[in-house]
Structure formats: structure tokens, C-alpha cells
Amino acid sequence: MSFEQLFDDVYPRLHRYCTRMTSDSDVAEDAAQEAFVRLLDRNVSGDPSGLKSWLFKVATHLIRDRVRVEENRARLLEENPVRPPPVDTPAEELERSEDVARVREALDSLAERDRTLLLLREEGFSYRELAQAVDVKASSVGTLLARARERLVRALDDEDES
């Protein structure tokens, strides 16, 4: 499989995974692209499935690192707030952004392992690959996934009520 074929196959899914993983779309896009740059830089080899796992793993680490930096920055901003002036937003757009915010809040309320499991499963990873990604036994993945989905649904309900 050529690099272009791998890119065509994996990039849209990796981008979606990153976008779901972080609320910062720039961070998501950077992480997805940087993973591919590193794939080329380091001349990583293997079968397409292994390369896909490698790309998702790298992107996950990149997002985790960036999120930590952003959290520090957010803490600083909280101490010294800079508030942008209010802007008029069309009702439809406002509703959509509130909708997105509710899902984001619910997803962020999950433990990192649950979130990673759910999102990787949505991208078609097998139980064996999921087990490697979050360092658990493959036989536990079904239980963990079922609980993670239950928690997310409950969090979504809580967000809807509030």
C-alpha cells in the first residue's frame, strides 16, 4: 500500500477521531497531520493495520500533550481573564454550538480510558487493538465498552436535563 493510499484510507478517520478527542479543532488537525509527518520522518514500516494503530497512538499522545499545555494556559487565563466582546450569533448556529457543547461536556466527563476506548471502537478497532491501546486484557474490553457507553449516555442525559 502506498503512502497516498494509506493517507486516503486512514486520514479521514484519524481526523474524526482527533476532532472527537479534543474540542480544539486546530489541535485535532495538527495532531492528525503530525502523525503522518512522523510516519514519513521515521520511516515506520508494517502492515496497514499496524500502521493505522501506530498513527492513532501517535495522534492520541500528541493530543494529550497539547491538552496539558492548553489546560495550563486556561488556568493562567482564569487567573487573568481576557473576555472577548459579546457577538450576535444566529439562533440556528447558537443551537448547534450548544448541542456540540453538551456532547463535548458529556464526553469530557468520562475517564480518559473510557473515552479512548469508545472513540477508537467507533473507528473500527478490534478488541485486541483496543486492549493494546489502553493496556487491558482483551477479555475485559466488552465490559469496559458497555460501561463506557452507559456512562456517556447517562452524562448526555444529565447535560440535556441541565
Binding site: F7, R16, R20, E29, V100, V103, L118, L152
Partner: peptide
């Protein structure tokens, strides 16, 4: 869960990427 997650998705342009 799938319906909720899909609300977070954004358009992607693989060629530009």
C-alpha cells in the same frame, strides 16, 4: 452514542491535508 459523537464531526479535505 454514535449520533451524539457525530455532532462533533467536521468536514475534512484530505487532499489539502
Amino acid at each position: 452514542v454514535q449520533a451524539a459523537l457525530s455532532r462533533l464531526d467536521q468536514e475534512v479535505d484530505p487532499q489539502a491535508a
